[in-house]
Design a protein around this nucleic acid. Structure first.
Length: 564
RNA sequence: CGGGGAGUGGCGUAGCUGGCUAACGCACGUGCUUUGGGAGCACGAGAUCGCGGGUUCGAAUCCCGCCUCCCCGACCA
């Protein structure tokens, strides 16, 4: 490709609204342009990188037996009603009506369509196991996009679906994907950590997320450097040490004016935060007021709380809702409360004589004991793991790191095939539900993460596997010596003939501009043809990553661009 | 949705306490010079100052409403 003809431009100044390095560089180097919040165009260079990433994924999913297909972006709403997600998924599912006033959705994932196809096509156990996949645009109307390509609303995702006879088959398909993902991310130049994760809206029985460590990551990972334990904080558990045993003391009211936070309360009473019980209030999707009690030195983990409640979602409660149940925000506890579901953290249930709210402005109770002073509806682990907590596997201290999710794998089970009546006849002559798994990788997010991991102060440094072009040919001093253009043209043509075209900077620009752009664009190899290089016997070959530079004979470079 | 910030040629910005023809750097076009690290000179094109309304003799600038984008939070397979 001749740079003089390429649909792109580089920017000398950093765009003002690009904070992450990947976003800044992809904009400056002319790979992407923004159309709206979380909506991007891929310019030819960016599109080419996406295709390269897709190809790596395609090869590895093919390798485990995946069959590529394509499913629609626009679905009739009935398909989503059938699985229950039309109602259960929030506004991130984009809904609209067509000209005949039929309810439609923009697909955010494709489990429903796959399950419907399975019901239509699969009859016999002989057709299983089977993996299908596609690369398709998803639209998720996220409340807030951020970080350039890291979190967008419209994006291409590889999603594959495994279809098995039984749970053991699902385990095998899941394992195949796990291994395929490790190969994919390695080839993409990404260092990932597989963490066990929540199943969220997908439903199912088990899941892993593949995470890239990044300070801008939106997930918090709980990691143990000693034994390798890794989990998303949403589901991570840490053993909580029992507090020293004490006999329950009589409950007594104590004046605590102006202590609406645990920190001020503990200071006021001169006790540790671990001697207090903190109440947090939520409302479930089906309208139940939930009072969550954790110890003052912990915080509520909403994912765990939702799962303990078997709710589809929760939101923070309003002040009026809390008061309506007989509790006082800032001084709240379940003591004397009504019409609320009380969920108590397992540690609180074992902690004697805590300070808790008296449900009266400016007052708390000392010596509150679960069971005696109030009765929980549910006792569960509902707290976040904190830095330094003991690892659940080896007991060593865990660390917390931010991560970006670049891929995930889910054991779905039969949630969707049950809904769609997707069964097969087994060897036993009986109908059985097909057991599904689903496996996603966001292509654009991976591109952004690759740039995050592979750049320097001059620009992008693409790993060879995903570079849009293998080499960037720079012609300098063409006016001084006609052999420059001759040589460069010939190298370019050789690469075309070999079917692996290189990027050719044939522009009438100063050497500085060309070198700077070559480094910004980030091809793994920069080839420089100039009167100087020709006088030295050939073409200068520069390794973008190391900066190592050597002049090599033209025949060598010809072989190089041919792909020898 | 809550809090904060910002919309001025393609990019980055100035102007904003009401007053000349909306300024500067980069990018862009033409010509000449230049050609191994973001060249020089000259000429030139390009902006309904986010949109709508209002105040005023006069609005990029003041007032009201709206839209959009970014950041933090909420949210998130």
């Amino acid at each position: 490709m001749r740079l003089s003809q390429l649909f792109f431009t580089t920017l000398r100044d950093d765009p003002s609204d690009a904070e992450m390095p990947s976003h800044r560089l992809l904009l400056r180097a002319g790979y992407v342009r923004q159309l709206g919040a979380g909506i991007y165009s891929l310019l030819p260079l960016g599109y080419r990188v996406n295709k390269r990433v897709e190809q790596v994924i395609r090869e590895e999913i093919d390798r485990i037996g995946g069959q590529e297909m394509e499913m629609p972006v626009v679905h009739p709403a009935d398909v989503w009603r059938r699985s229950g997600r039309y109602e259960s998924v929030g506004p991130e599912l984009a809904r609209f009506t067509d000209r005949a006033d039929r309810d439609m959705v923009l697909a955010m994932t494709h489990e429903e369509v796959v399950a419907g196809l399975l019901a239509d096509i699969v009859r016999s156990y002989r057709q299983l196991p089977m993996i299908v996949y596609h690369f398709q645009t998803k639209f998720r109307d996220e409340p807030r996009s951020r970080g350039g390509l890291i979190r967008v609303r419209e994006f291409v995702m590889k999603d594959s679906y495994s279809c098995d006879r039984d749970a053991a088959g699902l385990d095998r398909s899941y394992q195949l994907h796990y291994e395929a993902y490790e190969r994919i991310f390695k080839r993409l130049g990404l260092t990932t950590i597989a963490v066990s994760s929540d199943v969220g809206m997908m439903g199912g029985t088990g899941a892993h997320e593949f995470m890239v460590l990044n300070p801008a990551g939106e997930d918090v990972l709980v990691l143990c450097e000693a034994c390798g334990y890794a989990a998303n904080r949403q589901v991570a558990k840490a053993p909580k040490k029992d507090p020293p045993a004490e006999d329950p003391l009589p409950r007594e009211e104590v004046a605590t004016p102006g202590t609406t936070t645990i920190a001020t309360l503990a200071r006021h009473l001169g006790i540790g935060e671990d001697r207090t019980a903190k109440a947090a209030f939520f409302v479930t999707a089906d309208g139940r007021l939930v009072t969550a009690i954790v110890r003052g030195d912990h915080e509520v983990n909403e994912t765990k709380l939702v799962n303990a409640l078997r709710a589809t979602g929760i939101r923070p409660a309003q002040v009026e809702e809390i008061k309506a149940a007989g509790m006082e925000p800032g001084y709240g506890s379940p003591i004397g409360a009504h019409d609320t579901t009380v969920v108590v953290d397992d540690l609180v249930a074992r902690s004697p004589n805590l300070v808790a709210g008296a449900n009266k402005e400016g007052f708390h109770f000392r010596n509150v004991n679960v069971g005696r002073d109030f009765t929980p509806d549910l006792i569960a682990d509902i707290t976040n793991v904190q830095e330094g907590d003991p690892c659940p596997q080896c007991g060593g201290p865990v660390i917390l790191r931010n991560g970006i999710e670049v891929g995930n794998i889910f054991k779905l089970g039969t949630k969707y095939t049950d809904a769609f009546g997707a069964t097969y006849l087994g060897e036993d002559g009986e109908a059985h539900p097909i057991v599904m798994g689903s496996y996603g990788i966001g292509v654009g997010r991976n591109v952004a993460c690759i740039v995050e991991a592979h750049h320097d102060e001059k620009g992008i440094v693409w790993p060879a596997e995903v570079a849009p072009y293998a080499a960037h040919l720079v012609a300098i001093g063409a006016a001084k010596d006609p052999r420059v253009t001759e040589t460069a043209d010939r190298l370019h043509q050789l690469s075309i003939d070999a079917g692996r075209e290189i990027l050719y900077d044939d522009r009438d620009e100063s050497p500085g501009v060309k070198f700077t752009d070559a480094e910004l664009l980030g091809m793994p190899t920069i080839l420089t043809v100039s009167p100087r290089s020709l006088a030295a016997g050939g073409v200068e070959v520069t390794d973008r990553a190391t900066g190592a530079r050597e002049t090599r004979p033209i025949e060598d470079v010809e072989a190089l661009v041919r792909g020898a």
